[in-house]
Write a protein that binds this DNA or RNA. Sequence first.
DNA 1: GTGTATACTTAGTAATTATTTC
DNA 2: GAAATAATTACTAAGTATACAC
Length: 809
Amino acid sequence: MSYSSDEDDKPLVFKRTSTADKLKHSSQQKAAPTVKQEKPSTKPAPKPKSDSEDSEDDKPLSARILTAPKGNSNHTKTGPPTSSSQRPKPPVKAKVKDEDSDDEKPLSSKITSKSSAGASINKHDDSDDDKPLSSRVKQNGSASRDNQIKKPSVGVNKRPPNEERSSGQSLVKKPKLSDSSTPINRKPAPAKPEADTDDENDHVPISQRIKNQTPSSSKSSSVKQKALKAKSSIFKKTNQKSKKVVKNSKYSKPSKVPPGSGEGQKWTSLSHNGVIFPPPYKPHGVKILYKGKPVELTPEQEEVATMFAVMLDTDYMTKPVFKENFWNDWRKILGRNHTIQNLEDCDFKPIYDWHQAEKEKKKQMSTEEKKALKEEKMKVEEKYMWAVVDGVKEKVGNFRVEPPGLFRGRGEHPKMGKLKTRIQPSDITINIGKGEPIPECPIPGQSWKEVRHDNTVTWLAYWNDPINGKDFKYVFLAASSALKGQSDKEKYEKARALKKHIEGIRKAYTRDFGNKDLTKRQVAVATYLIDKLALRAGNEKDDDEADTVGCCTLKVENCEPVPPNILKFDFLGKDSIRYQNEVEVELPVFKAIQQFRTGKKGSDDLFDKLDTSTLNAHLKELMPGLTAKVFRTYNASITLDDMLNKGMKGESVAENVVVYNQANKQVAIICNHQRSVSKTHGLQMTRLNEKIDELKALIEELETDLARAKKGKPPLKGSDGKAKRNLNPEAIRKKIDQTNAKIEKMERDKETKEDLKTIALGTSKINYLDPRITVAWCKRSEVPIEKIFNKSLLAKFAWSMDVDPSFRF
DNA sequence: GTGTATACTTAGTAATTATTTC
DNA sequence: GAAATAATTACTAAGTATACAC
């Protein structure tokens, strides 16, 4: 891209304060990244803004969020307890307008389909495109299937699992009313969509926006030209590498019935070999001790004891709920009159030691042995790894049935430690094309629970979760499959569509902060928080799940107003990851929150008139297909796009990768994507420091040598006492430079490592960042795409590889 | 209007594999 | 070539969203 002078020197919006400030750790608490951004010192006290102040609605979240001065955001897994009880609230059914019209083409049809090298990594030649589908079996993720998804002539029933079906005809269902095919030029929704170049036209005041760099639109043509030049060389390599990457020209074609939408037919033909089961339990005969004495166990009893024993070194052992649940399930298997009468007197150490020894043995195997073992496994599994969908060979994602074990719920899950029983073929429902051979049941004498032929769904098999009987575990195609790719693309197209509505939406909710109708006021504030803080929607949860919340389920105690206009958030979100943030908000929001809290207990719902159905129903009125989660995708992607195009440009590929990772990091912070600090982090840092010190000592030594060399004297003996080679001053200088460079690199590595120790970059890359932003930027910046996407991501995002270099989210 | 079933995406972490360092 | 470290993949839990029965 061209980095025009007006943008070159603009700093990134996100500046971190010191890592130490932001990431607090304790032995119990998992440190977290902050969601807070530094506030420009000139920022005046919040006040209702005039229209003219707002020109940034379309800007990425990073550019809009401002938090309170002391707003460190620590997110830990073991955060403060949220309210003890979360009574499920009845969801309100969304009223959905029928917006389904084909009047507009999806963006995909507008993007030039280039058959860049990336687009033609198919195993098969294009030449067979015109053959009947059934005769063309392509491998994994061929984009050429894109337009083969058929719109059903009749709506299809999506209800099923427990219903008997005589395949086919009972699949009739009413078509969904909402259209999620994400056209970008839809009919205007009530909140009027704005033109694409609406950056300056936003009159909705959202306080705490940092003055932002407007992504230049005028430069696009020159960008295009430069980028086009850059493109070919960079992408050839990529594409040759990943054979399974798909041909994109066809992918870009709009499909009439989007698979991801839950509507209509997903495939015409589907064949696969079912699932593979874990091997039966092999008893080891190692005895646990009960009151110090070895106890004989049956294989079944021993199996469950082993599940517990191998977890002796995990944190679960510190959780009474885990132990109690385990004991309750194990004692049933032991039987009433068993010698073992309580868990406290059991010593599982012998089995633990045995298991450690087994692990060690495995580790000590020679490379050849390991290889042979792997090959054997591959041989057995190969047939389960693939499915053929509409004539295209696609990878199956999770073809292995989950083995039995103890349930490892996250956070304070009430069911942790319960026995996850072994899944049998009779638990499994298979979904396969009509007329295709039914997968052979791999366990002799048993049979599948049911075989369906439902082409309105994408799952190949499912079974009921033994922990929560009403939940299902599905077997789906892999992320690299065309079906998944198509739905991924639609997700991003929907998020891009939001860009055109966001101004109106922000105006609308800002207007409603003071609405007399309490429900409307709550909807407005909730939407604001979802937009501004990228909060999740917050569905209702059952009592037998971990007590976590999202926006709609926030409790009074999770959001504390601190005058004049700061909100202190502290709650456990998905996966019991703590969200802790102090945010400066607009005064009307602040007042509304105060009002919502009035007269309530800490454990009461903050938004008592609201649930996700109400909220999403409202959002759908503003934009077809809009739901709460779209805001996360939108804000993540627009942030990346903005940051990558703000004028930051590295001199080298390596520097550009750093620029990208910085942007990626900001998105991860916005989305609160965390990881736990690795066990060896401290050690690694110590080692790095030691190495740096060593190199610094070396520099000193070299400086002395240099001084001596200049005088024609030989170098002194090294620190090891050995004599050193007599080098000329020039050679010594070179050595000093090299060493300094090494030190600099290590310092950088150290900083990055510390900086990212609790931030997970991968989650946003996989789920939230439109890959076309990345691909286009790589093309413009001459960064090989493999520097950003690994093999899996290249396969997953095959559909995005032929994007035009000028693509902007 | 409410409750639940269903199907799909998103998420952190454990296990495995590749690469680097000594 | 072994150990350390980094990167990747596998695994499965935990979310979101919506259709539909009652």
